[in-house]
Nucleic acid binder design. Structure first.
Lengths: 213, 213
DNA sequence: CTATGTGAATCGATTCACAGCC
DNA sequence: GGCTGTGAATCGATTCACATAG
Protein backbone atom coordinates (compact mmCIF):
# COMPACT_ATOMS: atom_id res chain seq x y z
CA UNK A 1 0.00 0.00 0.00
CA UNK A 2 3.05 2.19 0.39
CA UNK A 3 1.49 4.83 2.61
CA UNK A 4 4.94 6.09 3.51
CA UNK A 5 5.85 8.19 0.50
CA UNK A 6 2.74 9.96 -0.67
CA UNK A 7 3.63 13.19 -2.52
CA UNK A 8 2.60 16.35 -0.77
CA UNK A 9 0.29 17.40 -3.59
CA UNK A 10 -1.51 14.06 -3.44
CA UNK A 11 -1.84 14.27 0.32
CA UNK A 12 -3.71 17.56 0.06
CA UNK A 13 -6.26 15.97 -2.23
CA UNK A 14 -6.88 12.84 -0.16
CA UNK A 15 -9.40 14.56 2.07
CA UNK A 16 -11.31 15.72 -1.01
CA UNK A 17 -11.51 12.18 -2.35
CA UNK A 18 -12.79 10.96 0.98
CA UNK A 19 -15.54 13.53 1.12
CA UNK A 20 -16.55 12.85 -2.46
CA UNK A 21 -16.53 9.08 -2.02
CA UNK A 22 -18.79 9.49 0.99
CA UNK A 23 -21.13 11.71 -0.99
CA UNK A 24 -21.37 9.00 -3.68
CA UNK A 25 -21.98 6.28 -1.14
CA UNK A 26 -24.70 8.37 0.47
CA UNK A 27 -26.45 8.45 -2.89
CA UNK A 28 -26.47 4.64 -2.79
CA UNK A 29 -23.86 4.23 -5.51
CA UNK A 30 -21.46 1.38 -4.96
CA UNK A 31 -18.70 2.52 -7.29
CA UNK A 32 -17.25 5.80 -8.51
CA UNK A 33 -14.95 6.41 -11.49
CA UNK A 34 -11.89 8.63 -11.69
CA UNK A 35 -13.80 10.68 -14.24
CA UNK A 36 -16.66 11.31 -11.82
CA UNK A 37 -14.33 12.23 -8.97
CA UNK A 38 -12.36 14.53 -11.26
CA UNK A 39 -15.42 16.35 -12.54
CA UNK A 40 -16.84 16.90 -9.07
CA UNK A 41 -13.55 18.27 -7.73
CA UNK A 42 -12.27 20.20 -10.71
CA UNK A 43 -9.32 17.90 -11.40
CA UNK A 44 -8.32 15.63 -14.30
CA UNK A 45 -9.16 11.93 -14.35
CA UNK A 46 -5.52 10.99 -14.85
CA UNK A 47 -4.53 12.97 -11.82
CA UNK A 48 -7.14 11.20 -9.71
CA UNK A 49 -5.96 7.78 -10.91
CA UNK A 50 -2.31 8.61 -10.24
CA UNK A 51 -3.25 9.77 -6.76
CA UNK A 52 -5.35 6.73 -5.91
CA UNK A 53 -2.70 4.40 -7.33
CA UNK A 54 -0.38 5.61 -4.58
CA UNK A 55 -2.24 3.59 -2.03
CA UNK A 56 -2.59 0.26 -3.75
CA UNK A 57 -4.32 -0.79 -6.92
CA UNK A 58 -7.91 -1.56 -6.12
CA UNK A 59 -9.81 0.13 -8.91
CA UNK A 60 -11.49 -2.24 -11.35
CA UNK A 61 -11.03 -1.45 -15.07
CA UNK A 62 -14.38 -0.98 -16.75
CA UNK A 63 -16.04 -0.42 -13.38
CA UNK A 64 -14.27 2.13 -11.20
CA UNK A 65 -13.51 2.26 -7.49
CA UNK A 66 -15.67 0.69 -4.83
CA UNK A 67 -16.89 3.51 -2.61
CA UNK A 68 -16.67 1.64 0.68
CA UNK A 69 -13.20 0.35 -0.15
CA UNK A 70 -12.03 3.80 -1.09
CA UNK A 71 -13.45 5.35 2.07
CA UNK A 72 -11.93 2.66 4.24
CA UNK A 73 -8.53 2.96 2.67
CA UNK A 74 -8.36 6.74 2.85
CA UNK A 75 -9.49 6.72 6.47
CA UNK A 76 -6.81 4.23 7.35
CA UNK A 77 -4.19 6.43 5.72
CA UNK A 78 -5.47 9.54 7.48
CA UNK A 79 -5.70 7.64 10.73
CA UNK A 80 -9.31 8.72 11.13
CA UNK A 81 -10.63 5.16 11.25
CA UNK A 82 -10.22 5.60 14.99
CA UNK A 83 -11.38 8.69 16.89
CA UNK A 84 -8.54 10.95 18.01
CA UNK A 85 -8.72 13.35 20.95
CA UNK A 86 -7.82 16.99 20.32
CA UNK A 87 -7.18 19.74 22.85
CA UNK A 88 -8.61 23.18 22.17
CA UNK A 89 -6.86 26.19 23.69
CA UNK A 90 -8.53 29.59 23.68
CA UNK A 91 -12.20 30.24 24.40
CA UNK A 92 -12.69 33.52 22.57
CA UNK A 93 -15.35 33.81 19.89
CA UNK A 94 -13.53 31.51 17.50
CA UNK A 95 -12.57 28.97 20.15
CA UNK A 96 -16.17 28.69 21.34
CA UNK A 97 -17.41 28.25 17.78
CA UNK A 98 -14.90 25.44 17.22
CA UNK A 99 -15.80 23.81 20.55
CA UNK A 100 -19.42 23.46 19.53
CA UNK A 101 -18.73 22.57 15.89
CA UNK A 102 -20.31 19.18 15.20
CA UNK A 103 -18.30 18.43 12.04
CA UNK A 104 -15.18 17.21 13.83
CA UNK A 105 -16.88 14.24 15.50
CA UNK A 106 -18.12 12.89 12.20
CA UNK A 107 -14.66 12.89 10.75
CA UNK A 108 -12.69 11.13 13.43
CA UNK A 109 -11.79 13.91 15.84
CA UNK A 110 -13.10 14.61 19.30
CA UNK A 111 -12.52 17.81 21.22
CA UNK A 112 -11.32 16.24 24.43
CA UNK A 113 -10.63 19.31 26.53
CA UNK A 114 -11.01 23.08 26.48
CA UNK A 115 -8.50 25.50 28.02
CA UNK A 116 -8.20 29.22 28.66
CA UNK A 117 -6.02 31.39 30.88
CA UNK A 118 -8.82 33.83 31.70
CA UNK A 119 -10.08 32.94 35.17
CA UNK A 120 -13.46 34.49 34.33
CA UNK A 121 -13.94 31.79 31.72
CA UNK A 122 -12.49 28.84 33.63
CA UNK A 123 -15.30 26.67 34.95
CA UNK A 124 -17.83 27.83 32.36
CA UNK A 125 -19.47 25.35 30.08
CA UNK A 126 -19.38 25.50 26.27
CA UNK A 127 -20.91 22.70 24.24
CA UNK A 128 -20.25 19.57 26.28
CA UNK A 129 -17.14 20.84 27.98
CA UNK A 130 -16.06 22.82 30.99
CA UNK A 131 -13.26 25.32 30.41
CA UNK A 132 -10.15 24.31 32.32
CA UNK A 133 -7.31 26.48 33.52
CA UNK A 134 -4.39 26.41 31.14
CA UNK A 135 -2.11 25.37 33.99
CA UNK A 136 -3.83 21.96 33.76
CA UNK A 137 -2.69 21.58 30.15
CA UNK A 138 0.29 19.35 30.84
CA UNK A 139 -1.57 17.05 33.20
CA UNK A 140 -4.60 16.57 30.96
CA UNK A 141 -2.68 16.10 27.72
CA UNK A 142 -0.41 13.51 29.32
CA UNK A 143 -3.27 11.69 31.02
CA UNK A 144 -5.44 11.51 27.90
CA UNK A 145 -2.53 10.95 25.52
CA UNK A 146 -3.51 13.96 23.44
CA UNK A 147 -1.38 14.32 20.32
CA UNK A 148 -3.07 17.19 18.52
CA UNK A 149 -4.23 20.64 19.54
CA UNK A 150 -6.15 23.56 18.12
CA UNK A 151 -4.75 26.96 18.98
CA UNK A 152 -7.38 29.72 18.99
CA UNK A 153 -5.74 32.38 21.15
CA UNK A 154 -4.80 36.00 20.32
CA UNK A 155 -1.70 36.44 18.17
CA UNK A 156 0.41 37.83 21.01
CA UNK A 157 -0.16 34.73 23.15
CA UNK A 158 0.18 32.11 20.40
CA UNK A 159 3.92 31.40 20.63
CA UNK A 160 3.81 31.07 24.40
CA UNK A 161 0.90 28.60 24.31
CA UNK A 162 2.56 26.72 21.43
CA UNK A 163 5.65 26.28 23.62
CA UNK A 164 3.47 24.89 26.40
CA UNK A 165 1.76 22.52 23.98
CA UNK A 166 5.09 21.25 22.70
CA UNK A 167 6.07 20.69 26.32
CA UNK A 168 3.12 18.40 26.85
CA UNK A 169 4.21 16.18 23.96
CA UNK A 170 1.67 17.39 21.42
CA UNK A 171 2.87 16.58 17.89
CA UNK A 172 0.51 18.60 15.74
CA UNK A 173 -0.93 22.11 16.15
CA UNK A 174 -3.71 23.64 14.10
CA UNK A 175 -3.00 27.33 14.55
CA UNK A 176 -5.58 30.05 13.95
CA UNK A 177 -3.37 32.93 15.08
CA UNK A 178 -1.88 34.98 12.25
CA UNK A 179 1.74 34.35 13.22
CA UNK A 180 4.41 31.90 12.19
CA UNK A 181 5.00 29.57 15.12
CA UNK A 182 8.46 28.45 16.08
CA UNK A 183 8.41 24.77 17.04
CA UNK A 184 10.83 21.82 16.98
CA UNK A 185 10.99 19.96 13.65
CA UNK A 186 9.23 16.96 15.16
CA UNK A 187 6.06 19.01 15.65
CA UNK A 188 3.75 19.71 12.70
CA UNK A 189 2.02 23.07 12.47
CA UNK A 190 -0.74 24.04 10.10
CA UNK A 191 -1.78 27.66 10.18
CA UNK A 192 -5.20 28.87 9.07
CA UNK A 193 -5.09 32.65 8.95
CA UNK A 194 -8.51 33.97 8.09
CA UNK A 195 -7.34 37.33 6.77
CA UNK A 196 -4.83 35.61 4.54
CA UNK A 197 -7.57 33.49 3.06
CA UNK A 198 -9.47 36.65 2.17
CA UNK A 199 -6.31 38.18 0.70
CA UNK A 200 -5.77 35.15 -1.52
CA UNK A 201 -9.38 35.21 -2.60
CA UNK A 202 -9.14 38.90 -3.44
CA UNK A 203 -6.05 38.19 -5.51
CA UNK A 204 -7.85 35.46 -7.43
CA UNK A 205 -10.75 37.82 -8.12
CA UNK A 206 -8.40 40.52 -9.37
CA UNK A 207 -6.44 38.21 -11.63
CA UNK A 208 -9.69 36.93 -13.16
CA UNK A 209 -10.73 40.47 -13.91
CA UNK A 210 -7.40 41.01 -15.66
CA UNK A 211 -7.85 37.82 -17.67
CA UNK A 212 -11.15 38.89 -19.18
CA UNK A 213 -10.11 42.50 -19.74
CA UNK B 1 5.83 45.50 -12.11
CA UNK B 2 4.21 42.71 -14.02
CA UNK B 3 1.49 41.89 -11.52
CA UNK B 4 -0.39 39.93 -14.15
CA UNK B 5 1.48 36.64 -14.25
CA UNK B 6 2.52 35.78 -10.71
CA UNK B 7 2.95 31.99 -10.33
CA UNK B 8 0.40 30.36 -8.07
CA UNK B 9 3.04 29.18 -5.61
CA UNK B 10 4.38 32.70 -5.27
CA UNK B 11 0.90 34.12 -4.80
CA UNK B 12 0.33 31.89 -1.81
CA UNK B 13 3.43 33.25 -0.12
CA UNK B 14 2.75 36.92 -0.73
CA UNK B 15 0.54 37.23 2.34
CA UNK B 16 3.29 35.72 4.45
CA UNK B 17 5.81 38.27 3.21
CA UNK B 18 3.40 41.06 4.00
CA UNK B 19 2.88 39.89 7.55
CA UNK B 20 6.58 39.44 8.12
CA UNK B 21 7.49 42.82 6.61
CA UNK B 22 4.97 44.45 8.93
CA UNK B 23 6.44 42.61 11.91
CA UNK B 24 9.88 43.95 11.00
CA UNK B 25 8.63 47.48 10.54
CA UNK B 26 6.88 47.30 13.92
CA UNK B 27 10.26 46.54 15.47
CA UNK B 28 11.51 49.81 13.98
CA UNK B 29 13.70 48.15 11.38
CA UNK B 30 13.76 49.97 8.06
CA UNK B 31 15.00 47.10 5.90
CA UNK B 32 14.72 43.31 5.83
CA UNK B 33 16.84 40.81 3.90
CA UNK B 34 15.71 37.78 1.95
CA UNK B 35 17.67 35.70 4.45
CA UNK B 36 15.71 37.12 7.39
CA UNK B 37 12.37 36.64 5.67
CA UNK B 38 13.31 33.09 4.71
CA UNK B 39 14.40 32.12 8.20
CA UNK B 40 11.25 33.50 9.81
CA UNK B 41 8.98 31.72 7.36
CA UNK B 42 10.80 28.44 6.87
CA UNK B 43 11.75 29.09 3.23
CA UNK B 44 15.03 29.54 1.36
CA UNK B 45 16.52 32.96 0.68
CA UNK B 46 16.68 32.27 -3.07
CA UNK B 47 13.00 31.44 -3.11
CA UNK B 48 12.15 34.68 -1.37
CA UNK B 49 14.25 36.71 -3.84
CA UNK B 50 12.71 34.99 -6.85
CA UNK B 51 9.26 35.67 -5.44
CA UNK B 52 9.91 39.33 -4.68
CA UNK B 53 11.58 39.81 -8.07
CA UNK B 54 8.21 39.03 -9.66
CA UNK B 55 6.88 42.40 -8.70
CA UNK B 56 9.72 44.66 -9.73
CA UNK B 57 13.30 44.96 -8.60
CA UNK B 58 13.46 47.19 -5.60
CA UNK B 59 15.76 45.34 -3.26
CA UNK B 60 19.15 46.99 -2.69
CA UNK B 61 22.22 44.74 -2.88
CA UNK B 62 24.16 44.81 0.36
CA UNK B 63 21.15 46.25 2.18
CA UNK B 64 17.95 44.32 1.59
CA UNK B 65 14.36 45.41 1.01
CA UNK B 66 12.85 48.55 2.44
CA UNK B 67 10.03 47.43 4.74
CA UNK B 68 7.62 50.24 3.90
CA UNK B 69 8.24 49.79 0.18
CA UNK B 70 7.68 46.08 0.43
CA UNK B 71 4.48 46.48 2.42
CA UNK B 72 3.15 49.09 0.03
CA UNK B 73 3.89 47.02 -3.03
CA UNK B 74 2.37 43.82 -1.68
CA UNK B 75 -0.74 45.66 -0.55
CA UNK B 76 -1.16 47.17 -3.98
CA UNK B 77 -0.90 43.72 -5.56
CA UNK B 78 -3.37 42.23 -3.11
CA UNK B 79 -5.65 45.22 -3.56
CA UNK B 80 -5.75 45.72 0.20
CA UNK B 81 -4.38 49.25 0.00
CA UNK B 82 -8.06 50.20 -0.07
CA UNK B 83 -10.65 48.72 2.28
CA UNK B 84 -13.00 46.25 0.58
CA UNK B 85 -16.49 45.42 1.80
CA UNK B 86 -17.35 41.77 2.39
CA UNK B 87 -20.76 40.20 2.97
CA UNK B 88 -21.06 37.51 5.62
CA UNK B 89 -23.84 34.94 5.25
CA UNK B 90 -24.70 32.62 8.13
CA UNK B 91 -24.92 33.63 11.76
CA UNK B 92 -24.30 30.31 13.45
CA UNK B 93 -21.45 29.94 15.91
CA UNK B 94 -18.79 30.31 13.26
CA UNK B 95 -20.52 33.19 11.47
CA UNK B 96 -20.85 35.15 14.70
CA UNK B 97 -17.19 34.55 15.55
CA UNK B 98 -16.17 35.84 12.12
CA UNK B 99 -18.48 38.85 12.41
CA UNK B 100 -16.76 40.02 15.56
CA UNK B 101 -13.25 39.13 14.45
CA UNK B 102 -11.14 42.29 14.56
CA UNK B 103 -8.35 40.97 12.34
CA UNK B 104 -10.13 41.61 9.03
CA UNK B 105 -10.31 45.38 9.49
CA UNK B 106 -6.60 45.68 10.01
CA UNK B 107 -5.90 43.92 6.77
CA UNK B 108 -8.09 45.76 4.34
CA UNK B 109 -11.44 44.01 4.67
CA UNK B 110 -14.61 45.24 6.28
CA UNK B 111 -17.60 43.08 7.06
CA UNK B 112 -20.24 45.24 5.42
CA UNK B 113 -23.36 43.21 6.08
CA UNK B 114 -24.55 40.13 7.92
CA UNK B 115 -27.27 37.80 6.62
CA UNK B 116 -29.21 34.79 7.85
CA UNK B 117 -32.40 33.05 6.78
CA UNK B 118 -33.50 32.28 10.34
CA UNK B 119 -36.14 34.85 11.26
CA UNK B 120 -35.30 34.38 14.94
CA UNK B 121 -31.85 35.82 14.22
CA UNK B 122 -32.85 38.56 11.80
CA UNK B 123 -32.78 41.92 13.57
CA UNK B 124 -30.35 40.81 16.26
CA UNK B 125 -27.07 42.60 16.72
CA UNK B 126 -23.66 40.93 16.55
CA UNK B 127 -20.55 43.03 16.76
CA UNK B 128 -21.43 46.27 15.01
CA UNK B 129 -24.01 44.78 12.70
CA UNK B 130 -27.66 43.90 12.61
CA UNK B 131 -28.52 40.57 11.01
CA UNK B 132 -30.50 41.08 7.81
CA UNK B 133 -32.87 38.71 6.10
CA UNK B 134 -31.20 36.80 3.32
CA UNK B 135 -33.88 38.01 0.91
CA UNK B 136 -32.15 41.42 1.13
CA UNK B 137 -28.91 39.93 -0.19
CA UNK B 138 -29.31 41.06 -3.79
CA UNK B 139 -30.36 44.59 -2.89
CA UNK B 140 -27.57 45.18 -0.37
CA UNK B 141 -24.78 43.63 -2.44
CA UNK B 142 -25.74 45.66 -5.47
CA UNK B 143 -26.15 48.87 -3.53
CA UNK B 144 -22.83 48.56 -1.69
CA UNK B 145 -20.96 47.09 -4.67
CA UNK B 146 -19.93 44.05 -2.65
CA UNK B 147 -17.57 41.77 -4.58
CA UNK B 148 -16.63 39.22 -1.95
CA UNK B 149 -18.57 37.11 0.50
CA UNK B 150 -17.93 34.74 3.38
CA UNK B 151 -20.17 31.70 3.47
CA UNK B 152 -20.64 30.26 6.96
CA UNK B 153 -23.86 28.27 6.57
CA UNK B 154 -24.54 24.54 7.10
CA UNK B 155 -23.28 22.25 4.34
CA UNK B 156 -26.75 21.43 3.04
CA UNK B 157 -27.52 25.11 2.43
CA UNK B 158 -24.16 26.13 0.99
CA UNK B 159 -24.79 25.52 -2.72
CA UNK B 160 -28.12 27.33 -2.62
CA UNK B 161 -26.65 30.40 -0.93
CA UNK B 162 -23.66 30.29 -3.28
CA UNK B 163 -26.07 30.45 -6.22
CA UNK B 164 -27.74 33.49 -4.68
CA UNK B 165 -24.38 35.14 -4.11
CA UNK B 166 -23.37 34.56 -7.71
CA UNK B 167 -26.68 36.10 -8.73
CA UNK B 168 -25.82 39.32 -6.89
CA UNK B 169 -22.59 39.66 -8.87
CA UNK B 170 -20.22 38.53 -6.13
CA UNK B 171 -16.91 37.42 -7.68
CA UNK B 172 -15.22 35.68 -4.77
CA UNK B 173 -16.56 33.37 -2.07
CA UNK B 174 -14.71 32.24 1.03
CA UNK B 175 -16.54 29.03 1.85
CA UNK B 176 -16.46 27.38 5.27
CA UNK B 177 -18.90 24.59 4.40
CA UNK B 178 -17.27 21.20 3.74
CA UNK B 179 -18.61 20.86 0.19
CA UNK B 180 -17.28 21.61 -3.27
CA UNK B 181 -19.28 24.53 -4.62
CA UNK B 182 -20.40 24.66 -8.21
CA UNK B 183 -20.01 28.18 -9.57
CA UNK B 184 -19.36 29.80 -12.95
CA UNK B 185 -15.67 30.01 -13.93
CA UNK B 186 -15.68 33.79 -13.44
CA UNK B 187 -16.28 33.35 -9.71
CA UNK B 188 -13.40 32.40 -7.42
CA UNK B 189 -14.05 30.07 -4.51
CA UNK B 190 -11.71 29.29 -1.67
CA UNK B 191 -12.85 26.60 0.72
CA UNK B 192 -11.64 26.33 4.29
CA UNK B 193 -12.87 23.02 5.67
CA UNK B 194 -11.92 22.77 9.31
CA UNK B 195 -12.08 18.97 9.51
CA UNK B 196 -9.89 18.70 6.44
CA UNK B 197 -7.30 20.88 8.09
CA UNK B 198 -7.25 18.50 11.05
CA UNK B 199 -6.99 15.51 8.70
CA UNK B 200 -4.00 17.04 6.95
CA UNK B 201 -2.38 17.82 10.26
CA UNK B 202 -2.93 14.27 11.46
CA UNK B 203 -1.35 12.97 8.29
CA UNK B 204 1.69 15.19 8.80
CA UNK B 205 2.03 13.91 12.37
CA UNK B 206 1.81 10.30 11.23
CA UNK B 207 4.35 10.68 8.47
CA UNK B 208 6.79 12.31 10.88
CA UNK B 209 6.42 9.37 13.24
CA UNK B 210 7.25 7.05 10.32
CA UNK B 211 10.29 9.15 9.42
CA UNK B 212 11.88 8.78 12.83
CA UNK B 213 11.01 5.12 13.28
C1' DC C 1 -16.45 -0.67 -25.18
C1' DT C 2 -15.26 1.32 -20.59
C1' DA C 3 -12.10 2.48 -17.25
C1' DT C 4 -7.69 1.56 -14.63
C1' DG C 5 -2.57 1.86 -14.09
C1' DT C 6 1.73 3.52 -15.72
C1' DG C 7 6.05 4.72 -18.50
C1' DA C 8 7.37 8.78 -21.17
C1' DA C 9 6.99 13.61 -22.07
C1' DT C 10 5.89 18.07 -20.55
C1' DC C 11 5.36 21.64 -17.56
C1' DG C 12 6.30 24.34 -13.45
C1' DA C 13 8.72 25.34 -9.25
C1' DT C 14 12.92 25.14 -6.46
C1' DT C 15 17.74 25.23 -5.97
C1' DC C 16 22.36 26.17 -7.56
C1' DA C 17 25.92 29.10 -9.06
C1' DC C 18 27.45 33.33 -9.98
C1' DA C 19 27.59 38.13 -11.97
C1' DG C 20 26.77 42.76 -10.40
C1' DC C 21 25.89 46.35 -6.95
C1' DC C 22 26.30 48.68 -2.28
C1' DG D 1 32.11 41.53 2.93
C1' DG D 2 27.02 41.41 2.34
C1' DC D 3 23.16 41.01 -0.45
C1' DT D 4 20.19 41.14 -4.74
C1' DG D 5 18.74 39.34 -9.32
C1' DT D 6 18.87 35.73 -12.63
C1' DG D 7 20.26 32.09 -16.19
C1' DA D 8 21.08 27.12 -15.86
C1' DA D 9 20.24 22.83 -13.66
C1' DT D 10 17.46 20.00 -10.84
C1' DC D 11 13.54 18.30 -8.89
C1' DG D 12 8.66 17.26 -8.60
C1' DA D 13 4.04 17.23 -10.38
C1' DT D 14 0.82 17.01 -14.26
C1' DT D 15 -0.51 15.41 -18.66
C1' DC D 16 -0.18 12.34 -22.58
C1' DA D 17 -0.42 7.98 -24.73
C1' DC D 18 -1.29 3.47 -24.44
C1' DA D 19 -1.11 -1.33 -22.69
C1' DT D 20 -4.14 -4.11 -19.92
C1' DA D 21 -8.26 -5.84 -17.47
C1' DG D 22 -13.32 -6.35 -16.87
Amino acid sequence: MNTGNIPKSTAHRISLYLRQAEAHRDQNRTTVSSEQLAKALGLTATQVRKDLAHFGQFGRPGVGYNCDDLIQRIKSILGTDQVRPVALVGCGNLGRALATYKGFERRGFRIAALFDNDLHKVGKRYGDFIVQDITKLYFVCQRDRIRMAILAVPAHAAQDVADQLVGTGVQGILNFAPVTLNVPPAVAVSTVALSMELEQLGLAVRSMQRDRQ
